[in-house]
Protein backbone atom coordinates (compact mmCIF):
# COMPACT_ATOMS: atom_id res chain seq x y z
CA UNK A 1 0.00 0.00 0.00
CA UNK A 2 2.66 2.47 1.10
CA UNK A 3 5.08 1.33 -1.55
CA UNK A 4 2.42 1.63 -4.16
CA UNK A 5 1.55 5.19 -3.26
CA UNK A 6 5.22 6.14 -3.19
CA UNK A 7 5.56 4.55 -6.60
CA UNK A 8 2.60 6.51 -7.85
CA UNK A 9 4.01 9.74 -6.44
CA UNK A 10 7.39 9.06 -8.03
CA UNK A 11 5.77 8.40 -11.37
CA UNK A 12 3.90 11.65 -11.14
CA UNK A 13 7.09 13.58 -10.40
CA UNK A 14 8.83 11.87 -13.29
CA UNK A 15 6.08 12.68 -15.75
CA UNK A 16 5.98 16.25 -14.48
CA UNK A 17 9.71 16.62 -15.06
CA UNK A 18 9.30 15.04 -18.46
CA UNK A 19 6.62 17.43 -19.59
CA UNK A 20 8.57 20.38 -18.19
CA UNK A 21 11.60 19.33 -20.19
CA UNK A 22 9.42 18.85 -23.25
CA UNK A 23 7.95 22.32 -22.88
CA UNK A 24 11.37 23.91 -22.49
CA UNK A 25 12.73 22.05 -25.52
CA UNK A 26 9.66 23.09 -27.48
CA UNK A 27 10.24 26.71 -26.49
CA UNK A 28 13.94 26.61 -27.32
CA UNK A 29 13.33 24.94 -30.70
CA UNK A 30 10.78 27.61 -31.54
CA UNK A 31 13.10 30.42 -30.47
CA UNK A 32 15.99 28.96 -32.42
CA UNK A 33 13.93 28.67 -35.58
CA UNK A 34 13.02 32.33 -35.45
CA UNK A 35 16.52 32.89 -36.75
CA UNK A 36 16.66 30.18 -39.42
CA UNK A 37 16.20 31.49 -42.92
CA UNK A 38 14.08 32.17 -44.85
CA UNK A 39 12.10 34.48 -42.59
CA UNK A 40 8.44 33.43 -42.62
CA UNK A 41 7.12 36.89 -43.42
CA UNK A 42 3.69 35.99 -44.71
CA UNK A 43 2.92 33.88 -41.68
CA UNK A 44 4.14 36.53 -39.25
CA UNK A 45 1.87 39.10 -40.91
CA UNK A 46 -1.04 36.67 -40.80
CA UNK A 47 -0.54 35.95 -37.13
CA UNK A 48 -0.03 39.61 -36.25
CA UNK A 49 -3.34 40.29 -37.92
CA UNK A 50 -4.94 37.51 -35.94
CA UNK A 51 -3.37 38.25 -32.54
CA UNK A 52 -3.05 42.01 -32.83
CA UNK A 53 -5.40 43.64 -35.31
CA UNK A 54 -8.38 41.50 -34.43
CA UNK A 55 -7.90 42.29 -30.72
CA UNK A 56 -8.07 46.06 -31.11
CA UNK A 57 -11.79 46.29 -30.51
CA UNK A 58 -11.79 44.01 -27.46
CA UNK A 59 -8.85 45.87 -25.98
CA UNK A 60 -10.47 49.27 -26.51
CA UNK A 61 -13.67 48.09 -24.84
CA UNK A 62 -12.01 46.44 -21.85
CA UNK A 63 -9.50 49.28 -21.52
CA UNK A 64 -12.19 51.91 -21.54
CA UNK A 65 -14.32 50.23 -18.92
CA UNK A 66 -11.35 49.32 -16.74
CA UNK A 67 -10.26 52.96 -16.78
CA UNK A 68 -13.79 54.16 -16.05
CA UNK A 69 -14.27 51.85 -13.10
CA UNK A 70 -10.85 52.81 -11.75
CA UNK A 71 -11.85 56.44 -11.99
CA UNK A 72 -15.15 55.81 -10.24
CA UNK A 73 -13.79 53.56 -7.53
CA UNK A 74 -10.68 55.67 -7.05
CA UNK A 75 -12.70 58.85 -6.72
CA UNK A 76 -14.86 57.52 -3.91
CA UNK A 77 -11.83 56.09 -2.08
CA UNK A 78 -9.73 59.22 -2.48
CA UNK A 79 -12.53 61.64 -1.61
CA UNK A 80 -12.63 60.10 1.88
CA UNK A 81 -9.09 61.30 2.59
CA UNK A 82 -9.65 64.50 0.69
CA UNK A 83 -7.11 63.90 -2.03
CA UNK A 84 -9.35 63.26 -5.03
CA UNK A 85 -7.00 65.51 -6.96
CA UNK A 86 -4.61 62.57 -7.11
CA UNK A 87 -7.13 60.51 -9.09
CA UNK A 88 -5.19 60.82 -12.35
CA UNK A 89 -2.10 59.48 -10.69
CA UNK A 90 -3.97 56.58 -9.14
CA UNK A 91 -5.62 55.57 -12.41
CA UNK A 92 -2.51 55.93 -14.54
CA UNK A 93 -0.17 54.15 -12.15
CA UNK A 94 -2.39 51.11 -11.67
CA UNK A 95 -3.05 50.91 -15.38
CA UNK A 96 0.45 51.29 -16.68
CA UNK A 97 2.39 49.09 -14.34
CA UNK A 98 -0.26 46.52 -13.42
CA UNK A 99 -3.69 46.26 -14.99
CA UNK A 100 -2.70 47.21 -18.53
CA UNK A 101 -0.30 44.37 -19.20
CA UNK A 102 -2.24 41.81 -17.15
CA UNK A 103 -5.70 42.50 -18.60
CA UNK A 104 -4.36 42.75 -22.12
CA UNK A 105 -2.59 39.42 -21.77
CA UNK A 106 -5.70 37.77 -20.36
CA UNK A 107 -7.97 39.15 -23.07
CA UNK A 108 -5.59 38.17 -25.84
CA UNK A 109 -5.15 34.72 -24.34
CA UNK A 110 -8.89 34.29 -24.23
CA UNK A 111 -9.24 35.45 -27.81
CA UNK A 112 -6.14 34.31 -29.65
CA UNK A 113 -4.42 31.90 -27.28
CA UNK A 114 -7.40 29.59 -27.08
CA UNK A 115 -7.75 29.44 -30.82
CA UNK A 116 -4.02 28.84 -31.21
CA UNK A 117 -4.27 25.83 -28.94
CA UNK A 118 -7.39 24.57 -30.71
CA UNK A 119 -6.02 25.12 -34.20
CA UNK A 120 -2.71 23.41 -33.54
CA UNK A 121 -4.49 20.67 -31.62
CA UNK A 122 -6.76 19.96 -34.58
CA UNK A 123 -3.75 19.97 -36.86
CA UNK A 124 -2.24 17.36 -34.60
CA UNK A 125 -5.23 15.04 -34.51
CA UNK A 126 -5.96 15.36 -38.22
CA UNK A 127 -2.35 14.38 -38.96
CA UNK A 128 -1.45 17.75 -40.46
CA UNK A 129 1.60 17.94 -38.23
CA UNK A 130 2.68 14.52 -39.44
CA UNK A 131 2.07 15.72 -42.98
CA UNK A 132 4.48 18.61 -42.36
CA UNK A 133 7.10 16.16 -41.19
CA UNK A 134 6.70 14.04 -44.30
CA UNK A 135 7.35 17.17 -46.33
CA UNK A 136 10.55 17.82 -44.39
CA UNK A 137 9.09 20.91 -42.79
CA UNK A 138 9.85 21.45 -39.15
CA UNK A 139 6.39 21.78 -37.59
CA UNK A 140 7.66 23.79 -34.62
CA UNK A 141 9.27 26.31 -36.92
CA UNK A 142 6.23 26.34 -39.18
CA UNK A 143 3.61 26.73 -36.45
CA UNK A 144 5.22 28.12 -33.33
CA UNK A 145 7.95 30.54 -34.42
CA UNK A 146 5.74 32.93 -36.43
CA UNK A 147 3.18 32.98 -33.63
CA UNK A 148 5.72 33.90 -30.99
CA UNK A 149 7.10 36.74 -33.11
CA UNK A 150 3.59 38.01 -33.80
CA UNK A 151 2.77 37.85 -30.08
CA UNK A 152 5.95 39.70 -29.11
CA UNK A 153 5.00 42.43 -31.58
CA UNK A 154 1.33 42.54 -30.62
CA UNK A 155 1.29 42.31 -26.82
CA UNK A 156 3.26 45.50 -26.05
CA UNK A 157 1.36 47.50 -28.67
CA UNK A 158 -1.99 46.29 -27.38
CA UNK A 159 -0.87 47.03 -23.83
CA UNK A 160 0.01 50.60 -24.83
CA UNK A 161 -3.41 50.93 -26.44
CA UNK A 162 -5.07 49.57 -23.31
CA UNK A 163 -3.17 52.05 -21.11
CA UNK A 164 -4.04 55.05 -23.22
CA UNK A 165 -7.69 54.10 -23.58
CA UNK A 166 -7.83 53.33 -19.86
CA UNK A 167 -6.46 56.75 -18.96
CA UNK A 168 -9.13 58.26 -21.20
CA UNK A 169 -11.73 56.08 -19.44
CA UNK A 170 -10.57 57.39 -16.08
CA UNK A 171 -10.82 60.89 -17.48
CA UNK A 172 -14.40 60.25 -18.58
CA UNK A 173 -15.61 59.01 -15.22
CA UNK A 174 -13.38 61.21 -13.05
CA UNK A 175 -13.41 64.50 -14.89
CA UNK A 176 -16.49 64.54 -17.07
CA UNK A 177 -18.85 62.65 -14.77
CA UNK A 178 -17.52 63.43 -11.29
CA UNK A 179 -16.17 66.86 -12.01
CA UNK A 180 -12.48 66.75 -11.20
CA UNK A 181 -10.74 69.57 -13.00
CA UNK A 182 -9.52 68.14 -16.29
CA UNK A 183 -6.18 69.93 -16.16
CA UNK A 184 -5.58 68.61 -12.67
CA UNK A 185 -6.37 65.10 -13.88
CA UNK A 186 -4.01 65.18 -16.85
CA UNK A 187 -1.37 66.97 -14.83
CA UNK A 188 -1.32 64.36 -12.10
CA UNK A 189 -1.18 61.63 -14.76
CA UNK A 190 1.85 63.22 -16.37
CA UNK A 191 3.49 64.05 -13.06
CA UNK A 192 3.05 60.65 -11.48
CA UNK A 193 4.18 58.43 -14.34
CA UNK A 194 7.88 57.85 -14.50
CA UNK A 195 9.77 56.13 -17.27
CA UNK A 196 10.47 53.39 -14.76
CA UNK A 197 6.77 52.47 -14.52
CA UNK A 198 6.30 52.49 -18.27
CA UNK A 199 9.29 50.20 -18.73
CA UNK A 200 7.90 47.83 -16.12
CA UNK A 201 4.62 47.62 -18.02
CA UNK A 202 6.37 46.84 -21.27
CA UNK A 203 8.66 44.23 -19.76
CA UNK A 204 5.58 42.51 -18.43
CA UNK A 205 3.89 42.62 -21.80
CA UNK A 206 6.94 40.99 -23.40
CA UNK A 207 7.11 38.28 -20.78
CA UNK A 208 3.38 37.53 -21.02
CA UNK A 209 3.59 37.31 -24.81
CA UNK A 210 6.32 34.71 -24.65
CA UNK A 211 4.80 32.72 -21.80
CA UNK A 212 1.20 32.54 -23.01
CA UNK A 213 2.07 31.81 -26.63
CA UNK A 214 4.43 29.06 -25.57
CA UNK A 215 1.86 27.47 -23.28
CA UNK A 216 -0.96 27.66 -25.82
CA UNK A 217 1.08 26.33 -28.73
CA UNK A 218 2.66 23.66 -26.56
CA UNK A 219 -0.72 22.44 -25.30
CA UNK A 220 -2.06 22.26 -28.84
CA UNK A 221 1.05 20.67 -30.25
CA UNK A 222 1.12 17.86 -27.71
CA UNK A 223 -2.65 17.38 -27.52
CA UNK A 224 -2.26 13.68 -28.28
CA UNK A 225 0.08 13.08 -25.35
CA UNK A 226 -2.01 14.71 -22.65
CA UNK A 227 -5.60 14.60 -23.76
CA UNK A 228 -5.71 11.93 -26.45
CA UNK A 229 -6.90 12.12 -30.02
CA UNK A 230 -10.32 13.43 -30.88
CA UNK A 231 -12.47 16.48 -30.41
CA UNK A 232 -12.60 15.91 -26.67
CA UNK A 233 -8.83 16.00 -26.52
CA UNK A 234 -8.65 19.30 -28.36
CA UNK A 235 -11.25 20.90 -26.13
CA UNK A 236 -9.40 19.70 -23.05
CA UNK A 237 -6.10 21.05 -24.35
CA UNK A 238 -7.70 24.39 -25.14
CA UNK A 239 -9.15 24.69 -21.66
CA UNK A 240 -5.83 23.71 -20.11
CA UNK A 241 -3.99 26.15 -22.30
CA UNK A 242 -6.17 29.09 -21.27
CA UNK A 243 -6.21 28.22 -17.57
CA UNK A 244 -2.48 27.63 -17.39
CA UNK A 245 -1.73 30.77 -19.38
CA UNK A 246 -3.83 32.88 -17.02
CA UNK A 247 -2.20 31.36 -13.96
CA UNK A 248 1.25 31.99 -15.35
CA UNK A 249 0.31 35.56 -16.20
CA UNK A 250 -0.41 36.22 -12.51
CA UNK A 251 2.64 34.31 -11.31
CA UNK A 252 4.99 36.10 -13.70
CA UNK A 253 3.35 39.40 -12.88
CA UNK A 254 4.25 38.93 -9.25
CA UNK A 255 7.78 37.74 -9.98
CA UNK A 256 8.57 40.62 -12.34
CA UNK A 257 7.11 43.24 -10.02
CA UNK A 258 9.01 41.73 -7.10
CA UNK A 259 12.35 41.97 -8.84
CA UNK A 260 11.66 45.34 -10.40
CA UNK A 261 10.79 47.35 -7.33
Amino acid sequence: MLIKSIEKFGKKILSLLESMGRAILFFLTGMMHIFTLPVQFAKIIDQTWFIGSKSIFVIILTGLFTGMVLGLQGYYSLVKVGSEAALGAAVALTLISELGPVFTAIMVTARAGSSMAAEIGIMRISEQIDALKTMHINPVRFLFSPRIIAAVISFPLLTALFDVVGIIGGFISGSIMLGINQHVYMDTVIQSIKIHDINLGFYKAFAFAVVTTTICCYRGYYTHLYSGFGARGVSLSTTNAVVQSCISIFVFDYIITFFWI
Binding site: T48, W49, G52, S53, I56, I153, S154, P156, L157, L158, A160, L161, D163, V164, F202
Partner: peptide, 9 residues
Protein backbone atom coordinates in the same frame (compact mmCIF):
# COMPACT_ATOMS: atom_id res chain seq x y z
CA UNK B 1 -2.77 48.04 -35.81
CA UNK B 2 0.96 48.59 -35.65
CA UNK B 3 0.61 52.33 -36.24
CA UNK B 4 -2.07 52.69 -33.57
CA UNK B 5 0.12 50.69 -31.20
CA UNK B 6 3.20 52.75 -31.93
CA UNK B 7 1.25 55.98 -31.49
CA UNK B 8 0.07 54.86 -28.06
CA UNK B 9 3.54 53.67 -27.12
Amino acid sequence: FVSIGILCT
